[in-house]
Design a protein around this nucleic acid. Structure first.
Lengths: 196, 196
DNA sequence: TTTCTTGTTGAACACACATACAACAGTGCT
DNA sequence: AGCACTGTTGTATGTGTGTTCAACAAGAAA
């Protein structure tokens, strides 16, 4: 009767652990800290595992990217489309705006701009995101009798939210979620009608 | 009479060459490509020069950051404050929105979020930027008899512009400078009055 | 031409890094 | 208990990386 040297996990559990470690590493040290050694330290696993489960560092990075996008898509992923106000509440909630999450996005954006594989994946995900937001804007504007270009406004809204993320991330004492929410309303309300 | 083995430059000229090479490297490969070898290849200089002129890689990165910010500060750096419309024209001109420049920002943001020295420098520069834009918004709103919170609107405007940069950079077929300019107007005009 | 200053070079170093792989050991099955 | 499957380990390997530094040479000054 001796203590086991390690715990043997189902592949999906181990993969989830590694992805979580990857997100932690990205949040703390950015893309330059995303190394095998750091990932092993953060996950408690050994060097060989990343190659075994993801085929290499890049595979894990792609999985981390998908994991970072998951909460966004979950917000818009319901069958019955959310009303615009509720959608914004979710997108701008503290849960989404956590500092670590923002650092992860910053780290990934720099890589997406430069890594074709990651970029292709991003465009796919982004497309769903954009369409869901445009739909919410369209139906809101219709209900308030306004005429707008939903696609363009959606692009602007996404850009604004992204920019606010950056500000919160880089200068937290200058911007916070409530102020961000107010600015988003200031952007939308004049075109789509009041949001609540 | 034999050809010289290398050209000897004044320190400031060589430094400028290295910074230019650094920006090129950041634009092409992001922060992970910012290595001594790549920098030497891009600038044509030898390995020892970066240490000699900047004390190390980080020194050059800081200089690259300052160089990336320079055109922004130049726009707002005149003694007589620009009117809001002209300021936006400058900020959203093609010159500012060049793709390479956006990749550089993306690469730097990821590092600023994680590198304290770079971040301190950023906050200094950002503060001037923010104040100049808030001043332009305040005087424009005053002239049009609107009451606004210039500082908050400035934060929103900067966030929107940053977000639009990201979209142009990551998805150029979805966003371009003229559309960006229109969206910025859609954001500001309802609060500050018409921009032209 | 000779001398001096200093920008420049490139090899040498120690370390970080990603990957491959053979040996190992949990865990379920019989 | 014995077996087989496969998740796990950690070392080995080769390459990439940042910095240092002694020697070199371009260009100005005398």
């Amino acid at each position: 009767m001796t203590a086991p040297k390690y715990k043997r996990l189902a592949p999906e559990d181990r993969a989830a652990e590694l992805v979580e470690a990857g997100l932690k590493v990205l949040a703390k040290g950015g893309i330059t800290a995303f190394t095998i050694d750091n990932l092993c330290k953060a996950s408690g696993a050994s060097r060989g595992l990343i190659g075994h489960h993801f085929g290499g560092k890049d595979g894990l990075l792609a999985a981390c990217y998908a994991a970072a996008y998951a909460p966004l898509l979950q917000v818009i992923g319901t069958d019955t489309p959310l009303p615009l106000g509720a959608l914004l509440d979710d997108l701008l909630s503290d849960r989404q705006f956590q500092r670590d999450g923002l650092n992860i996005w910053l780290a990934l954006w720099g890589e997406i701009a430069v890594n074709p594989a990651l970029r292709a994946e991003h465009l796919r995900q982004y497309d769903r995101y954009h369409r869901a937001i445009a739909a919410a804007i369209a139906s809101h504007a219709l209900a308030h009798g306004r005429q707008v270009d939903p696609s363009r406004l959606a692009s602007g809204l996404i850009a604004l939210i992204d920019g606010l993320w950056v500000e919160i991330c880089i200068a937290p004492d200058r911007m916070d979620p409530p102020a961000a929410r107010q600015l988003v309303e200031a952007f939308l309300a004049p075109h789509t009608g009041p949001l609540r």
